[in-house]
């Protein structure tokens, strides 16, 4: 095939470019494999994708003391197959079943099978009471 390609190509005066170098075929072949693998993977995912909704979960990572209060570092994870936009995260500190303090934050996007980190600020020490973090809502992007 290579020889035929070379023969089909007319000779150019003093160019020395009549025959594509082996490197060009190697680069082309490798690239074809990469692009085919990409298309194959995306097609596989597209065929197997069921119409799922975002599945959100909020995990507390760390509670820190700041200059004027406390910070709860969290990671919101989306285990569903669709992106959640404008995800509202609410954190509550409860004591004897009563809410003492509430903090909220909105995350722009959480793509499917992805996470997003953030922080909630409180004036009371969350460690001394019961801390609840939950995703309250989202929109489709």
């Amino acid at each position: 095939m290579k020889n035929r390609a070379a023969r089909q190509t007319p000779k150019r005066h003093g160019g020395g470019n009549e025959k594509p170098h082996t490197l060009e075929w190697v680069a082309g072949g490798l690239s074809a494999v990469v692009v085919l693998a990409l298309v194959g993977f995306i097609l596989y995912q597209a065929i197997n994708a069921t119409a799922t909704k975002p599945n959100l979960r909020v995990l507390v990572e760390q509670v820190e003391v700041t200059d004027n209060g406390y910070r709860v570092n969290f990671r919101a994870v989306n285990r569903g197959g669709a992106t959640a936009a404008g995800v509202e995260i609410e954190g509550r500190i409860e004591h004897d079943g009563e809410t003492i303090e509430t903090s909220r934050v909105t995350l722009d996007y959480i793509p499917p099978h992805s996470g997003q980190q953030g922080g909630l600020l409180f004036s009371q020490d969350p460690k001394r009471y019961r801390l609840r973090l939950a995703a309250k809502g989202y929109t489709d992007p």
Partner: peptide
């Protein structure tokens, strides 16, 4: 372009330039 002289079969240009360029 001297790398693509007239008469180059389409698949040759496709593999050597289009697909490689797209991966890049």
């Amino acid at each position: 372009d001297p790398s693509l002289p007239p008469g180059t079969p389409w698949w040759s240009a496709f593999l050597r330039f289009t697909i490689t360029g797209y991966s890049i």
